[in-house]
Design a protein around this nucleic acid. Structure first.
Length: 593
RNA sequence: GGUCUCGUAGCUCAGUUGGAUAGAGCAGCAGCCUUCUAAGCUGCCGGCCGCGCGUUCGAGCCGCGCCGAGAUCACCA
């Protein structure tokens, strides 16, 4: 049974019995705040012009009617214009029984909609860093949440595997690499390629400096440095499929993919489809022709194609270069078009940093102007803020980027040290210790990042992220582990706690049941807002509530067998929902820690 | 300059789409391990919700205007 529907129906019936038909007027019903007595609250202010009475009198009148006529309403109290309704504990017992019996609790029925979530989208010239971690965690989690909301989800990764930046790494490797490979150097493939990207930059800068010393302007020097000219030549050769360049490209990208796979696996993210720009970068030109024909685009004397968006408060935007080659926007138009056609998508979600807000604004507007409003309206740019460090922004030249692999390793090893220090690893096999440290270290990292509203710029403080106390992933994992421990001990003691118990709940037990029943609507809200942070806040709240309860009530030592059984069931359900919520965040929960 | 985002406790962040006395964690202070895991629990301290108008019975949330921070406005992707 949907509780919110039940309450609002009951209230509506009562209000209409007293004051006549409401029509499509909305009733304002909310959960009663903790500091007041009651379960649900009706805000009576909007009803005053119908009742023609004071807020207090109106609330009292409705409250009296409901206690008399609605069986589930046990009592009420009125504070100012707020009518607080208390439901009978048998009502909550019935809701709990429903939840406990529902194997798919929190999983919405299939909607028949297909939605693609594109995330990660790395460049193949350097390893992943902290910014990519936020992207990957968000993308994966949002995909999980949408799936829980009943959508068919396609997780897609569009790899930027071509362009001048890859040629820079390739050229530097060719010039200075001495045939170094991941195998020969022992380096992870993406790091090796990244090393040569940095190497290129070093030589490039040196050459610019030299040319400037010879009297060239800074701008000219940047264009004329031999190494950049050579890289550009390499790109031309690549486009012409020069065998030597092409095979080097295949080899080095292969190294990078092997490296990325390791990082993705460590992060626990995966993809259903991987697209490569080298295969899609020519798409979109047909759309340009179409736009020209429709008069949406125009051609300049140099043959380049543009769209004028100044009437929409934006600028003029280039769609095709004078030489007929495409730009980023052209490709994205083409790939968007093709995605919708090939996969029969209902929605398309791009997880891309907020530095591209303008790009997506333009993309959607152009599609709309071309007459594809249907698609345009179903494109969502899930824009997330930058991750900053205590010392400021990450700058690759200043060496302040936080490498993804280093970070993960650091979190896991810290988790291990702290676990060992607390004696949590005593009696564990090496394998178990590894598994727990990995889950805890990554849990800390993932939760730390996902608990923040995606659109906000966030601060990543390494010291704070490694804190396992308070509002953290490990705290939630720990709560789960403790519940599992209780359940293990109950099983060992041969306590049977299957079957429904009509419970006489204590107030804090009803609070737990109430929080449990909210889970499906939290999942729905998280899906609607593309915000895993909503799930995070909920799971944390549930865990915290349980911890308070846990300290006040002995569960295994409860003498009344029915009460003990009821409590074990309740506690087991809390563990289930914690595990389910954490799964939506892509966070594993250990059985013990 | 145009467009967009953000501004809540010393710090990091919530705030369920306009409701009651604005909440957590960290840091600080005071307690709690003979009891199912102390990665825990209980209490205290800490607020001009950037500022000002407006809409409303009611604004941290909506509108307008300022102030501050950031992103972007490339024949880069």
């Amino acid at each position: 049974m949907n509780i919110e529907t039940f309450i609002s129906d009951a209230v509506r019936r009562s209000v209409e019995a007293l004051y006549g038909e409401l029509g499509d007027e909305q009733l304002q019903i909310q959960k009663t705040r903790k500091e007041f007595e009651g379960d649900y609250t009706l805000v009576t202010f909007p009803l005053l012009r119908r009742s023609r009475k004071s807020p207090e009198a109106t609330a009292t009148e409705i409250g009296e009617y409901m206690t008399a006529n609605i069986a589930e309403v046990r009592a009420f109290n009125v504070i100012k214009g707020f009518l607080n309704l208390s439901l009978d504990s048998t009502f909550w017992a019935a809701r709990f029984a429903e939840i406990a019996a529902d194997e798919a609790f929190g999983q919405a029925p299939a909607t028949g909609r297909t939605v693609m979530v594109e995330y990660s989208s790395p460049n193949t010239n350097k390893p992943l860093h902290l910014g990519h971690i936020r992207n990957n965690l968000l993308g994966y989690s949002v995909a999980q949440i949408l799936a829980a909301n009943g959508h068919t989800v396609i997780k897609a990764n569009l790899v930027n595997d071509r362009g001048i930046h890859i040629c820079k790494s390739m050229l530097a490797w060719k010039l200075y690499g001495n045939g170094e490979t991941p195998a020969s150097s022992g380096m992870k493939g993406d790091h090796l390629v990244g090393k040569y990207y940095v190497e290129f930059d070093k030589h490039y800068k040196a050459q610019i400096k030299e040319l400037v010393a010879q009297g060239q302007s800074e701008d000219d020097a940047k264009k004329n440095a031999p190494i950049i000219l050579e890289a550009q030549e390499m790109l031309r050769k690549w486009e012409a499929r020069d065998p030597e360049v092409y095979s080097l490209w295949v080899t080095m990208n292969g190294w990078v993919y092997e490296g990325f796979d390791v990082t993705y696996k460590a992060l626990g993210v995966d993809f259903d489809k991987v697209y490569y720009e080298s295969q899609t970068y020519l798409l979109g030109k047909a759309l340009v022709d179409e736009g020209l024909k429709k008069g949406v685009f125009y051609r300049r004397p140099d043959n380049s194609v543009w769209i004028d968006l100044t009437a929409d408060g934006l600028d003029e935007k280039l769609l095709l270069r004078g030489d007929g080659t495409s730009v980023y926007m052209t490709q994205d138009l083409g790939t968007a078009f093709r995605r919708f056609e090939d996969n029969k998508l209902d929605d398309m979600i791009y997880v891309v940093g907020n530095e591209q807000n303008y790009h997506f604004q333009v993309l959607k507007l152009v599609l709309k102007k071309l007459g594809y409003a249907d698609w345009s309206d179903h494109i969502t740019h899930l824009s997330y803020g930058m991750v900053e460090l205590p010392e400021g922004k990450m700058k690759s030249r200043e060496g302040t980027v936080v490498d993804a692999d280093d970070l993960i390793e650091g979190m896991v090893s810290t988790a291990r040290e702290m676990s060992a220090e607390l004696g949590k690893l005593d009696g564990c096999t090496e394998e178990e210790a590894n598994a727990v440290s990995t889950m805890v270290g990554l849990g800390a990292l993932k939760y730390f990042i996902l608990k923040v509203d995606p659109k906000k710029t966030m601060l990543f403080d390494p010291r704070e992220s490694i804190d396992f106390n308070g509002n953290t992933g490990p705290f939630i994992q720990y709560t789960h582990a403790r519940i599992r421990s209780i359940l293990r001990k109950a099983a060992e003691a041969g306590i049977d706690f299957e079957g429904v118990v009509a419970a006489d709940y204590l107030p804090e037990e009803i609070d737990l049941v109430k929080t449990l029943t909210e889970y499906p609507s939290v999942v729905a809200a998280a899906g609607e807002n593309f915000a895993p942070s909503i799930i995070g806040a909920y799971v944390y709240e549930l865990a915290k509530q349980f911890n308070g309860y846990y300290h006040d009530h002995s569960i295994l030592k409860e003498e009344n067998a029915d009460v003990r059984r009821m409590r074990l069931q309740l506690v087991r359900q809390v563990a289930r929902v914690i595990r389910s919520g954490m799964k939506l965040l892509g966070i594993d929960v250990p059985e013990r820690m």
